Simulated assay, not measured.
Amino acid sequence: MSDLKKDAESLHKAASALNKVDDHTRKPLHDFKAASHDMSAFGALGSLMGAKDDIQDGMDTIAKLTGSLHKEWEAEAKFMGDVSDAFDLLDILLTSAARAKKG
């Protein structure tokens, strides 16, 4: 029964950490999105090669995918939290059943 409690605590901790990913990536993602429309770092080379639009499109796609990952991670964290809660409940039920059986 204590294994369920440890598993529940571990899942809860992992879910909390996963929920914080957005906090750590919000500013870098914002900066990345802003940079996707500033091709000055490439100078004339980007424009001469006709790559500017491709680079912007690629960076926009990466930013959108990151947003999708955040949603996926949020859903995964919720699921992990739900499983953690279920383990806690199961641990309580098993402990109660064991006590009732003994006593």
Rank of each mutant, 00 (worst) to 15 (best):
A51C: 04
T61C: 05
H70P: 02
G81E: 07
S10D: 13
S40Y: 01
V83I: 12
K101M: 07
I62T: 14
D53C: 01
D3S: 13
G81D: 09
L11E: 00
N19L: 10
L11S: 02
K27G: 04
K27Q: 14
I62N: 01
L89P: 00
T95W: 02
L4D: 06
K20L: 10
E76F: 10
M39C: 04
D23H: 11
L93S: 09
L90S: 06
D7E: 15
A15I: 00
E9R: 03
K6R: 15
D54N: 15
G58K: 11
I55F: 05
Q56F: 00
D3A: 15
A17G: 11
H24N: 10
R26V: 06
I55R: 00
G43V: 11
G50R: 03
K52Q: 12
L89T: 15
A97C: 08
M59L: 10
A35Q: 03
S96V: 08
L4F: 06
A51M: 06
K5G: 01
S47G: 10
I92W: 10
S36K: 03
S16T: 08
K13M: 09
R26Q: 10
A98E: 14
H37S: 14
H12A: 15
P28S: 05
N19P: 00
R99K: 11
L90Q: 06
D91Q: 10
F42I: 01
K13G: 11
D85Y: 04
E72F: 14
L94E: 12
H30D: 15
S10M: 07
L48K: 12
D88N: 09
F32S: 00
A14Q: 13
D3F: 05
M49T: 08
H30E: 15
W73Q: 08
F32H: 05
G58Q: 06
G58D: 13
F87E: 04
D7W: 00
D82M: 14
D91T: 08
D60M: 04
H37V: 12
K78E: 15
S47N: 12
K27M: 10
A41P: 04
A15L: 03
Q56T: 15
A98Q: 12
G46V: 00
G103M: 07
K101F: 12
K6H: 02
F87S: 06
D60W: 02
A34M: 14
K52E: 12
E9Y: 09
R99S: 13
T61P: 01
A44H: 07
K71F: 01
H70K: 09
D91V: 00
F87V: 01
D31C: 07
K20M: 09
H24T: 06
A17E: 12
